[in-house]
């Protein structure tokens, strides 16, 4: 449970840590889109290079990123597997009834795998190097234009920050309850599927109870301190767009140009 790194912040002073959360979010989302421009090995090499540079610059040990991929590994392999089976074309290596493993299938499967892993790596760079509170400030700022369309942007940002804020608490609490039930003789991950599902009840029930209680306490405390939804609020933490943030966006544009160029290069073979 404690191995989950989603929503955890890795303290540091690196170049990536100091970027403006807005720049980081825009860059990460943009990266996911440009990923679809890649169509040959040259473009994938370029994207991998970018991903590794971003990971290096974050000064977070690589093994922590690898740990982030682990929980999703089965999902990724499943998708890759489907790709391999259902993409036709090129040389055929193996054929058995409807199951065909072809050259294009293998290549496509490998590309899909790269795409998944890169998306996870790049979004982990953002979440590990940005404090949850900065992250929500950034999202809040980026969603601001939607306010004109009567979207409750501040409330959404508040909900986000509260949920992010309590992820570590919830994980720690899960660990505590699991320990407590293990001390009472529950064994996790053993026995039939039904039996395993039954062992989850003594964990989730106490967690639900404490989360609901906490939500109520939290609402009371907020009200006591004068919170009202819909009120205009100023912000204690201000976001400042710095020189390096523009550099970050320039890097993204350069990356796009590089991709477009290599993409066409590939066509000439």
């Amino acid at each position: 449970m404690n191995k989950l790194i989603l929503g955890r912040y890795f303290p540091g002073e690196s170049w990536v840590h100091q970027l403006d959360p807005r720049a980081k979010i825009v860059a990460a989302v943009y990266f996911i889109f440009v990923l679809f421009l890649a169509n040959n090995w040259q473009t994938y090499v370029l994207l991998w290079a970018f991903t590794f540079i971003a990971m290096r610059y974050s000064q977070v040990p690589i093994r922590i990123y690898l740990r982030g991929v682990r929980p999703l590994l089965y999902l990724i392999l499943f998708t890759v597997f489907l790709q391999i089976l259902f993409t036709a074309g090129g040389k055929i290596y193996f054929e058995w009834g409807p199951i065909v493993i072809s050259e294009y299938g293998l290549i496509n499967g490998f590309y899909i795998f790269c795409r998944f892993v890169m998306i996870i790596f790049v979004s982990t760079v953002v979440t590990l190097t940005t404090k949850p509170i900065d992250l929500t400030d950034g999202i809040n700022a980026l969603l601001k234009p939607l306010r004109k369309m009567k979207v409750p942007v501040d409330e959404i940002a508040l909900m986000l920050s509260i949920s992010l804020r309590f992820i570590p608490n919830l994980l720690d609490e899960t660990q505590k309850v699991m320990d407590a039930q293990r001390a009472r003789g529950t064994e996790f991950g053993e026995g039939s599927l039904l039996k395993q599902m039954k062992t989850l009840v003594p964990i989730f029930l106490p967690l639900f109870v404490s989360s609901l209680n906490r939500a109520e306490e939290m609402a009371n405390v907020m009200e006591v301190r004068g919170y009202q939804s819909g009120a205009t609020r100023s912000s204690f933490r201000q976001l400042y767009w710095k020189h390096r943030d523009s550099v970050c966006l320039c890097v993204m544009i350069t990356l796009t140009l590089g991709l477009l160029w290599l993409r066409n290069e590939g066509l000439f073979h």
Partner: peptide, 21 residues
């Protein structure tokens, strides 16, 4: 483990948070 956990009864801090039934 199973044997040890039967022999060692552990009351955690705020044990009421483990009630579920």
């Amino acid at each position: 483990f199973k044997k040890v956990r039967k022999q060692v009864g552990m009351v955690f801090q705020f044990p009421e948070s483990q009630l579920f039934a």
